[in-house]
Amino acid sequence: MPISREYIIKRLILLVVVVFGVLIITFVITRVIPARPELLWAGAHPTPEQLEKARKELHLDEPIYVQLYYYLADFFRGNWGVSWRTRQPVLQDILSALPATLELVIVAFIIAIALGVPLGAIAALKRNTWIDHVIRIVSVLGASVPVFWLALILQLVLSSWLGILPGAKRVDELVVYETGFKPITGFILFDSLIEGNFEVFVNALHHIILPAIVLSFYPFGLSARMTRAVMTEVLSELYTRSALAWGLPRRLVIYKYALKNTLAPVIASLGLSFGYTIIGAFMVELIFVWPGIGLYAAMALLSYDYPAIMGCVIVVAIIYTVINMIVDVVHAIIDPRVKL
């Protein structure tokens, strides 16, 4: 493995810096918003005394830097606070919501890569033919159609009008009760498969198709465009010309050699698009009532649930950093010139 210890240490330091920076920025932003979260904490129809008590409990009467101190001190002890909305520890809330989101995003990326990379490669090989133009239109649309619009339209057409696919939730509760399904990791597709519970697996798969397709549009468009651009460049490289001139079959030069040259930059761009996809997941989860971190964050945002918002932002930041670390490692595995 071409990965040095310095690289891992550097990345861990970077992770801490990123988390710290995100913490401070989101903390300041949430506190500066002119909202009155104590109203939520104090419950319905509070008396002025109750409100005052709530402000004290939430440290809202203290200066902002003291509030930050309290927060950081708790945060690094693993206490991410209690959600003001659900009254559950935030970390626990997030950890139970995270698998749903990761499952959705992973399936979306699998769809995006499985379609985007081959279509991009075909477009590069059939450059300036009608096939190329069709793929271009589809991929540009994929990358530019707003995800909330797409989600609503597909939900309306496929679920409401045609009734082909379910338009909400991860799985039918009835099937879960009847089969006595107990999730282990929280990844329903994975859990049901290893438990041999095919009824739940098929049901969950049926549910995930629509939101995953919606979410896959952006990474699909991106990977198709990137693959076409990089592949076109690789095919015009001197090493491609010499491989052909040395008599290697065209098939081999394209699918074994050029494709490998194409993959590294495509994977890197997909890693960067992950952040955007998470934002997409917020909308998709809200629209499809998908019980993941996006739905949780959206609800937290709508009710000024500071600890929950902070927790979500930090988890997303950590995931983003880790994903890009994985992208680096994959790049180093593909390209021997890259030393980490």
Binding site: L238, S242, A245, G247, N261, D335, P336
Partner: peptide, 18 residues
Amino acid sequence: GREVSIIFQDPAASFNPL
């Protein structure tokens, strides 16, 4: 590549780096 073959000016660019 079987009956005729070729070598190029820039040997570093003739080989696929991966």
